[in-house]
Amino acid sequence: MNQHSHQFVETYTGLVGFGMDRDTDQNTIIYYLQKFSDDALMQHLIRKMTQEELDEIFELINRILKAHLSEDEYHRLFLKDEHHHH
């Protein structure tokens, strides 16, 4: 069984746009990230990206994870490690 889901992008029928209101901004970020991380798109883009772009994405994601997730949430929600114990 797959552990990861990207269902939002498949079912979202709302507005995709940025700067109107917080809800639309949040939904647009989810939509964009799920579109961006699509396997076929990533396989095409990843080889074209500069090392600086790779670094920037890696650092941004890690900064957000560290700022907003406990260690337990990091293991459960990001790593999908259901057997993590302190």
Rank of each mutant, 00 (worst) to 15 (best):
M1D: 15
N2L: 12
Q3D: 10
H4V: 14
H4W: 14
H4L: 15
S5T: 11
H6K: 07
H6C: 11
Q7I: 08
Q7H: 14
Q7W: 14
Q7G: 13
F8L: 01
F8Y: 02
F8S: 03
V9Q: 06
V9Y: 01
V9C: 09
V9L: 09
T11W: 09
T13P: 00
T13W: 07
L15T: 13
L15Y: 14
L15S: 12
V16Y: 06
V16H: 08
V16C: 05
V16M: 06
G17E: 05
G17A: 14
F18N: 12
F18H: 13
G19C: 05
G19R: 13
D21I: 03
D23V: 01
T24P: 03
D25H: 12
Q26K: 13
Q26A: 03
N27C: 04
T28S: 02
I29M: 10
I29C: 10
I30C: 08
Y31I: 01
L33Q: 10
L33K: 00
Q34S: 02
Q34W: 01
Q34Y: 01
D38H: 04
D38R: 06
D39Q: 15
A40V: 15
L41V: 11
L41W: 12
L41K: 13
L41M: 14
M42G: 09
M42R: 04
M42C: 12
H44L: 07
H44P: 05
L45Q: 09
L45Y: 14
L45T: 12
L45N: 09
I46M: 04
I46K: 00
R47H: 13
K48F: 10
M49C: 08
M49V: 03
M49P: 06
T50F: 08
T50A: 06
T50E: 04
T50D: 00
T50S: 07
Q51Y: 12
Q51S: 13
E52S: 13
E52D: 12
E53W: 05
L54H: 06
L54W: 08
D55A: 12
I57P: 04
F58N: 14
F58C: 09
L60M: 10
L60W: 07
L60P: 05
I61C: 00
I61Q: 03
I61D: 00
I61Y: 05
N62W: 06
R63L: 04
R63P: 01
R63I: 02
R63K: 14
R63E: 01
I64P: 04
L65A: 02
L65Y: 07
L65I: 06
L65F: 08
K66Y: 10
A67P: 01
L69W: 00
S70K: 09
S70H: 11
S70L: 06
S70F: 05
S70Y: 09
S70I: 00
S70N: 11
E71L: 11
E71Y: 05
E71G: 06
E71R: 07
D72K: 04
D72M: 09
E73L: 03
E73W: 06
Y74P: 00
Y74D: 00
H75K: 04
H75V: 01
H75S: 02
R76H: 12
R76K: 07
R76A: 08
R76P: 07
R76G: 08
F78M: 04
F78V: 07
F78Y: 07
K80Q: 04
D81Y: 02
D81F: 01
E82T: 05
E82P: 09
E82L: 11
E82V: 05
H84Q: 12
H84L: 06
H84P: 08
H84W: 15
H84Y: 15
H85S: 09
H86D: 03
H86C: 10
H86G: 05
